Simulated assay, not measured.
Amino acid sequence: MRIVFICTGNTCRSPMAEGLAREILGPDIQVESAGLAAWEGEPASVQAVQVLKEKGIDLTSHQARLVRREMLATADWIVPMTGTHEMQLKEAFPEFAPKIKRLGSWVRERSHQDISDPWGGSVERYRRCAEDMAALLYEVKTSLEGQR
Protein backbone atom coordinates (compact mmCIF):
# COMPACT_ATOMS: atom_id res chain seq x y z
CA MET A 1 0.00 0.00 0.00
CA ARG A 2 1.35 3.43 -0.95
CA ILE A 3 -0.13 6.81 0.07
CA VAL A 4 0.90 10.26 -1.19
CA PHE A 5 -0.08 13.27 0.94
CA ILE A 6 -0.57 16.54 -0.95
CA CYS A 7 -0.69 20.18 0.14
CA THR A 8 0.37 23.45 -1.47
CA GLY A 9 4.08 23.94 -0.82
CA ASN A 10 5.10 20.60 0.73
CA THR A 11 6.77 22.34 3.66
CA CYS A 12 4.09 22.19 6.40
CA ARG A 13 1.00 20.00 6.19
CA SER A 14 1.92 17.20 3.82
CA PRO A 15 5.39 16.56 5.33
CA MET A 16 3.83 16.51 8.80
CA ALA A 17 1.15 14.10 7.53
CA GLU A 18 3.87 11.94 5.98
CA GLY A 19 5.86 11.82 9.24
CA LEU A 20 2.80 11.17 11.38
CA ALA A 21 1.51 8.51 8.99
CA ARG A 22 4.79 6.59 9.20
CA GLU A 23 4.24 6.34 12.95
CA ILE A 24 0.48 5.77 12.94
CA LEU A 25 0.03 3.54 9.88
CA GLY A 26 3.15 1.45 10.46
CA PRO A 27 5.88 0.04 8.26
CA ASP A 28 3.62 -1.92 5.90
CA ILE A 29 2.31 1.28 4.33
CA GLN A 30 4.66 3.43 2.26
CA VAL A 31 4.06 7.16 2.55
CA GLU A 32 5.42 10.22 0.82
CA SER A 33 4.35 13.80 0.19
CA ALA A 34 4.39 16.51 -2.43
CA GLY A 35 2.96 19.94 -3.14
CA LEU A 36 0.86 21.42 -5.91
CA ALA A 37 3.03 24.56 -5.94
CA ALA A 38 6.17 23.31 -4.21
CA TRP A 39 9.59 24.85 -4.65
CA GLU A 40 11.76 21.79 -5.17
CA GLY A 41 14.28 21.22 -2.39
CA GLU A 42 12.80 23.61 0.20
CA PRO A 43 13.10 22.26 3.76
CA ALA A 44 10.14 21.64 6.03
CA SER A 45 9.18 24.75 7.99
CA VAL A 46 11.00 25.31 11.28
CA GLN A 47 7.72 24.99 13.19
CA ALA A 48 6.81 21.69 11.45
CA VAL A 49 10.24 20.28 12.29
CA GLN A 50 9.89 21.39 15.93
CA VAL A 51 6.36 20.03 16.41
CA LEU A 52 7.18 16.63 14.95
CA LYS A 53 10.47 16.49 16.87
CA GLU A 54 8.33 16.79 20.03
CA LYS A 55 6.66 13.56 18.87
CA GLY A 56 9.96 11.82 18.13
CA ILE A 57 9.66 12.26 14.36
CA ASP A 58 12.55 13.77 12.39
CA LEU A 59 11.68 16.06 9.46
CA THR A 60 15.11 17.69 9.16
CA SER A 61 15.99 15.89 5.93
CA HIS A 62 12.67 16.68 4.20
CA GLN A 63 12.92 18.41 0.83
CA ALA A 64 9.83 19.75 -0.89
CA ARG A 65 8.74 18.08 -4.11
CA LEU A 66 6.29 19.09 -6.79
CA VAL A 67 3.45 16.68 -7.57
CA ARG A 68 4.23 14.55 -10.61
CA ARG A 69 2.02 12.23 -12.62
CA GLU A 70 4.44 9.28 -12.12
CA MET A 71 4.22 9.65 -8.35
CA LEU A 72 0.43 9.62 -8.44
CA ALA A 73 0.27 6.69 -10.87
CA THR A 74 1.99 4.37 -8.41
CA ALA A 75 -0.03 5.48 -5.36
CA ASP A 76 -2.92 3.47 -3.99
CA TRP A 77 -4.33 6.62 -2.34
CA ILE A 78 -3.70 10.30 -2.99
CA VAL A 79 -4.61 12.27 0.12
CA PRO A 80 -4.90 16.05 -0.22
CA MET A 81 -5.29 18.35 2.77
CA THR A 82 -8.23 20.45 1.52
CA GLY A 83 -11.22 20.36 -0.77
CA THR A 84 -9.47 22.87 -3.03
CA HIS A 85 -6.42 20.60 -3.31
CA GLU A 86 -8.73 17.68 -4.03
CA MET A 87 -10.51 19.60 -6.80
CA GLN A 88 -7.21 20.80 -8.33
CA LEU A 89 -5.82 17.27 -8.36
CA LYS A 90 -8.96 15.81 -9.94
CA GLU A 91 -8.93 18.51 -12.63
CA ALA A 92 -5.22 18.14 -13.38
CA PHE A 93 -5.15 14.33 -13.13
CA PRO A 94 -8.68 13.05 -13.88
CA GLU A 95 -7.40 9.53 -14.50
CA PHE A 96 -6.56 9.29 -10.78
CA ALA A 97 -9.84 10.75 -9.45
CA PRO A 98 -11.07 7.43 -7.91
CA LYS A 99 -8.05 7.26 -5.61
CA ILE A 100 -8.01 10.94 -4.56
CA LYS A 101 -9.61 11.31 -1.14
CA ARG A 102 -9.17 14.35 1.11
CA LEU A 103 -7.79 13.56 4.56
CA GLY A 104 -10.90 15.00 6.23
CA SER A 105 -13.23 12.78 4.19
CA TRP A 106 -12.08 9.47 5.67
CA VAL A 107 -14.47 10.12 8.56
CA ARG A 108 -18.12 10.44 7.58
CA GLU A 109 -19.03 13.01 10.25
CA ARG A 110 -16.03 15.17 9.27
CA SER A 111 -16.43 14.72 5.52
CA HIS A 112 -15.94 18.41 4.80
CA GLN A 113 -13.04 19.02 7.17
CA ASP A 114 -10.02 20.73 5.66
CA ILE A 115 -6.61 20.82 7.29
CA SER A 116 -5.96 24.55 7.52
CA ASP A 117 -2.56 25.85 6.49
CA PRO A 118 -0.40 26.74 9.50
CA TRP A 119 2.24 28.37 7.27
CA GLY A 120 3.73 31.42 8.97
CA GLY A 121 1.82 30.73 12.18
CA SER A 122 2.89 30.02 15.73
CA VAL A 123 4.25 26.71 16.96
CA GLU A 124 0.94 26.26 18.78
CA ARG A 125 -0.93 26.56 15.46
CA TYR A 126 1.34 23.83 14.01
CA ARG A 127 0.67 21.65 17.07
CA ARG A 128 -3.10 21.97 16.53
CA CYS A 129 -2.64 21.14 12.86
CA ALA A 130 -0.56 18.06 13.73
CA GLU A 131 -3.14 16.92 16.29
CA ASP A 132 -5.98 17.32 13.76
CA MET A 133 -4.03 15.30 11.22
CA ALA A 134 -3.10 12.59 13.71
CA ALA A 135 -6.75 12.11 14.70
CA LEU A 136 -7.73 11.75 11.05
CA LEU A 137 -4.82 9.41 10.33
CA TYR A 138 -6.08 7.04 13.02
CA GLU A 139 -9.38 7.00 11.10
CA VAL A 140 -7.49 6.28 7.86
CA LYS A 141 -5.76 3.39 9.64
CA THR A 142 -9.08 1.96 10.77
CA SER A 143 -10.51 2.31 7.26
CA LEU A 144 -7.50 0.65 5.62
CA GLU A 145 -7.57 -2.21 8.13
CA GLY A 146 -11.22 -2.75 7.21
CA GLN A 147 -10.26 -3.05 3.52
CA ARG A 148 -7.79 -5.90 4.13
Rank of each mutant, 00 (worst) to 15 (best):
G121Q: 12
D132Q: 15
L52P: 07
G120P: 03
D114Y: 04
R69A: 14
V107K: 15
E54M: 05
Y138G: 00
P15H: 12
R148E: 04
Q50D: 12
P27E: 11
G146C: 06
R65C: 03
I6G: 01
T11G: 05
V31Y: 04
A38S: 14
G104F: 00
V46K: 10
R69H: 13
Q47V: 03
A48G: 05
G121W: 07
V4D: 05
Y138T: 02
V107D: 13
A92I: 01
L103R: 01
R127E: 08
P80F: 10
V123C: 13
L66W: 01
T74F: 01
W106E: 04
C129N: 09
G26T: 00
K90Q: 14
E32C: 15
W39Y: 12
Q47C: 03
Q113A: 14
M81R: 02
L52N: 05
L144A: 05
C129H: 00
S111D: 11
Q63P: 06
C129W: 00
D117T: 07
G26L: 02
S45N: 12
D76R: 15
T142N: 12
S14L: 09
G83V: 00
A64D: 05
A34M: 14
L72T: 06
E70F: 11
L25C: 05
E42G: 01
R102F: 09
P98D: 03
E40W: 03
Y126T: 05
F5M: 12
R148G: 12
R108F: 13
D58V: 08
L89S: 00
I78D: 02
A44G: 03
M87I: 07
V46Y: 02
A64M: 05
E91G: 10
L52T: 02
E70K: 15
R125D: 00
S45T: 15
E95H: 03
G56D: 03
G120Q: 13
K99C: 08
R65S: 07
E91H: 10
E23D: 07
T82L: 10
Y126G: 06
M81L: 15
K55N: 04
G9A: 14
A97V: 04
I115S: 01
A17N: 05
T74A: 14
Q63W: 09
A73D: 03
V67L: 04
R69Y: 07
E18A: 11
A75V: 13
A21S: 15
Q88E: 13
G56K: 07
M71I: 06
P98C: 04
G146S: 01
G26N: 11
R128P: 02
T82P: 12
R68A: 14
Y126I: 08
V140K: 05
D132T: 07
V107P: 00
I6V: 15
L137S: 09
D117C: 10
M87F: 08
K101M: 06
L144D: 10
I78R: 09
R2P: 00
S111A: 15
P27L: 11
E40Q: 14
E23A: 15
W39V: 07
A134M: 06
K90E: 11
E42C: 08
T60Y: 03
W119P: 02
A17E: 08
R22A: 08
R148L: 07
D117M: 10
